[in-house]
Design a binder for these strands. Structure first.
Lengths: 153, 153
DNA sequence: TTTTAATTGCGAATGCTTTGTAATATGCAT
DNA sequence: ATGCATATTACAAAGCATTCGCAATTAAAA
């Protein structure tokens, strides 16, 4: 069993981890509101990137959808959340554990949308290595670079 | 001067290349319509991936925007066009030269959106190599994998 | 030329995301 | 504790890329 994806609701360590996020939020000077707490808690319980609507559904009537969008934008701006693009036009988000090796990728099934986190970055020995690690086949990937060009730096 | 990006309107070779695309379209059994010719011609004159709206504006009143979307979808389905995602929620498209090394990537300036084609795939020796080749700095990249998981294959 | 089916134009609708605004709640100072 | 100033929210509406339905048109074959 893959214990990485187990999240026991209410366990001491999980609660402590969530409290750290709340402390971090307060230390930024931003207000600690009920929607932001609910969103942080929900994000914290996920093991894969999730959409704004999934967050909204997950915390149901605790908060408006527009507030989810605004909170997530804030979390991205202060470095709490990382955005992923799975190519379907819906943004997905994940908490960034501070100090951890946050740079990672995913492989998504074209049929069932199953997501597997790739612990390491395999940019070179691409298809074969990933196929062996995950059991996926017909592997493709999207790769784009961003930066500052010589005129703009 | 980088002659790869020079496109002389009406030159013999350019016209011959465009005619090849038209012949290829006819050979698929699809109808050769005015909008499809205009879109192929416009795509053919570009050196970077372009959006549906850019195509629509480029051929102005020759064709409806919805028809651009439909034609591009067709071109993707028959392998004429490749789609790129620069992370801004707008799909971009490029003609795929048959038999060529079509797999490539781009680097996009975060400030001015300048696009540079990367002739080769540098998935491993990432930032330094690209920085040397392009003069870009603060390089980041987005990479996601797609495929069929073991349950779906 | 006639026929037939693919394709277009037009308008409306969809779905994700953003924005305007009045009401509300937070954090701070008193 | 209480009141204040301001950030934040809920709600509604708008924005934008994209898709769809359908009648009118057009390309390709007979």
């Amino acid at each position: 069993m893959d214990t990485e994806n187990v999240h026991c609701c209410g366990s001491f360590s999980e609660r402590a981890n969530l409290d750290k996020w709340i402390e971090r939020l307060q230390s930024t000077g931003m207000k600690l509101t009920a929607p932001r707490q609910a969103i942080l808690e929900y994000l914290h319980n996920q093991s894969h990137p999730i959409t704004n609507r999934e967050i909204y559904n997950g915390i149901s009537n605790d908060c408006d959808l527009a507030s989810v969008y605004r909170s997530i934008s804030l979390f991205i701006k202060i470095g709490f959340v990382q955005q992923f693009d799975f190519g379907d036009g819906i943004a997905r988000f994940e908490l960034v554990e501070p100090g951890s090796h946050s740079h990672h990728h995913h492989i998504i099934c074209n049929v069932c949308s199953k997501v597997i986190e790739l612990d390491h970055c395999f940019p070179d020995s691409l298809s074969e290595t990933i196929a062996k690690h995950t059991g996926f086949t017909q592997i493709t990937h999207k790769l784009e670079f961003f930066g500052l060009c010589s005129n703009c730096k």
